[in-house]
Amino acid sequence: MLKYMLRRCVEMAGAMLVMSLLVFMLGRALGDPVSLLLSDYATAEDRALLTQELGLDKPLAVQYLTFLSKALRGDLGRSISADRQPVVDSVMRRLPASLQLAAAALLVSLLVGIPLGILAALRYDSWIDHLVRGIALVGQSVPVFWLGIVLMFIFSVLLGWLPTSGYGQLRNIVLPAATMSLFSIAAVTRLTRNSMREALDSDYVRLARIKGLAESRVIWQHALSNSLVPVLTFMGTFFATMITGAVVIETVFGWPGIGRLAFEAILARDFPLMQAVVLVMTALFMSANLAVDVLQAWLDPRVRL
């Protein structure tokens, strides 16, 4: 198990390195940072000075190594906006809000999706099963921004129960978390239902019955544990949808997380800030996947090999 985790960590470090190289190359490919940073009235001397200051006169490889060593020390440069803040600070300030939203969405998807899926599997082919499958199908095909606007219209504008935006109180998180989790509730439900069906039909569940185990044990231990394996695997994908979802949802609901920060950075063409957001999102995504893999290895002994 320890060896497995170590191997996964090394893999992750490698992937991060590739990602940093990509981000760096992209930055150089998108245009000259000097013209971005300077006003249109800058003189040739100003340009030369800044080029030197930024190290842009050095070979690309050296530039990358400098970028990397600074990044490792938590320095990803300064924002090009008026305040010239270190971008890492901006990202870190916005991170907690995003994590809260993601955690809430994840919790809701699992707490709603898994029981619904189990229910549908146990009442296979009944009206409950059909209803749950219908909802899951709809939930997976509705676009996120549209859902956010509809929910906001119903619960904030029409009913006035919840605020349209804001941050800090429990009632603020309800709508964005609901919007973010709908897709994954639907996905988790469908996955749980199908894998539970498969488990209930499996040879090992049949053997558990042959052995004379109580039905509760057959279902809640033998069938359920196996049906959670694919749900866990899916959580890796889930984080990806959550990160892209964050940009849209945080913008729609005015949620002060890194998703909206990314949106703001794009609007302001604040390239250093975008770089930082992308790198932090990547690191988050990879850590989440690592956590999923470790959980999976803990649940399924075949993975540990």
């Binding site: 040879d203 090992y204 053997l207 019955r209 042959i210 004379g212 185990l213 039905e215 196996n226």
Partner: peptide, 28 residues
């Protein structure tokens, strides 16, 4: 009744099913 079956299976009557290879739970 369905409820009484676990008490009979395994004790009264039992079975080695046709595919014993896949009959063990892979997670336990």
């Amino acid at each position: 009744p369905e409820k009484a079956l676990p008490a009979v299976r395994g004790r009264g009557i039992t079975m080695i099913p046709q595919n014993p290879m896949t009959s063990l739970n892979p997670l336990f």
